[in-house]
Design a protein around this nucleic acid. Sequence first.
DNA 1: TTCGTTGCAAATGTTTTGCACCTGA
DNA 2: TCAGGTGCAAAACATTTGCAACGAA
Lengths: 130, 130
Amino acid sequence: MNYSRQRESIKDFLSTRKDHPTADTIYMNIRKQFPNISLGTIYRNLNLLSDIGEITRLTTGDGCDHYDFNTVPHNHFVCTRCHSVLDLEMDSIDDIVEVARKNFPGRIDRHCTYFYGICAECMDTSEEAS
Amino acid sequence: MNYSRQRESIKDFLSTRKDHPTADTIYMNIRKQFPNISLGTIYRNLNLLSDIGEITRLTTGDGCDHYDFNTVPHNHFVCTRCHSVLDLEMDSIDDIVEVARKNFPGRIDRHCTYFYGICAECMDTSEEAS
DNA sequence: TTCGTTGCAAATGTTTTGCACCTGA
DNA sequence: TCAGGTGCAAAACATTTGCAACGAA
């Protein structure tokens, strides 16, 4: 894999964000540095980087994938109101894989867990967080 | 909400399947009964039914949503080779919500956990299930 | 020189929607 | 009757891809 300034810029940008931006958000930001970069290049690099395990793709169910510079397995929270995606600093729950393996005929490699609710910011915005 | 034969047919079909078909698979099957039904109607009804909680939408990350007639919370297995989605009959892991709630400033309502691996059928197909 | 990478634009695949017509209550 | 549901086709949206030009080694 050759070096490319565009790919490096994408990695740099992603490493500065603790939220987990979408391809489009990344595109908007990288354009400040590379005004002519195309969305295709963004997607090609995000796919490439997640394929080789340098970043993590998050499919939260809001219609578009999010990307995380942190490749250490951890869990995420998704706000059902503002769709923000946050890291959860919580004790390991990886033993649920053992629970799932019991009586399952195939092979289970990993789990992917998302927690849904209302983030603190949205809770403040309206008292009755319906 | 008025009765509609198309919606009833979708529910009937979904209730007979223990795998979790996509909108397109549902479309192909309902067409046997309603040759002129449109994909728009399929999607409108799947959205409607999942909004009122009569079915469950599964976003597994393979590009299209799957639908489950069973609305009792349970966990799913996704085969990374053939993309089949299976129900897991396993002990409850809902206590992970409590783990996540610890030190989290917002409100956590529920979790959604997918287990990934190779299903028994794919394991048989090739011995070295890479 | 060579092959990976890019920008661009067109294509893809899934899902949504506007609208005129139909249908259930 | 009439709000809600449908079929159809077009649109929307996220993502992928073909291709000629560019750039790194």
